[in-house]
Simulated assay, not measured.
Amino acid sequence: MNRKSSAHRRPGRRAAVAAGLVLAVGLGVSTQVSAQASVHAPAKASAAASQSVSGTFGQAVTRVADFYGAYIDAKGDYADPDVTLATALRKHYLTPDFAKRLAAWEKKNGADGVLRAQNVPAQWTVSDNGAVGNGHEVIVTLAFGSGETTQKTKLFVLVERYNHISDIATTSAR
Rank of each mutant, 00 (worst) to 15 (best):
S127C: 07
L142T: 12
A7C: 08
G130L: 04
T95N: 09
Q36V: 00
K154M: 12
S146V: 07
K100H: 15
Q36I: 00
Q123F: 15
Q36D: 11
N119W: 06
G110D: 13
L23Y: 13
S127P: 01
S166E: 15
D80A: 15
V17C: 09
V39Y: 10
S34H: 13
R14P: 09
T62D: 05
H40M: 07
Q36Y: 00
P42D: 15
V17A: 10
V33S: 01
A99G: 13
S166P: 06
S6K: 14
T31W: 14
T62A: 10
S50R: 02
A47I: 02
Q36H: 01
H40Y: 06
L89Q: 00
Q59C: 14
V33F: 07
N134W: 02
K44T: 14
A65I: 00
T31Q: 15
Q32K: 05
T125W: 09
G130T: 03
G20P: 05
A131R: 02
R174Y: 09
G135R: 01
A16F: 02
T62C: 06
A103W: 04
A111W: 03
A122Q: 07
R10L: 14
Q51H: 06
S50Q: 04
L23I: 10
S30E: 13
A86Y: 13
G130A: 12
V114M: 12
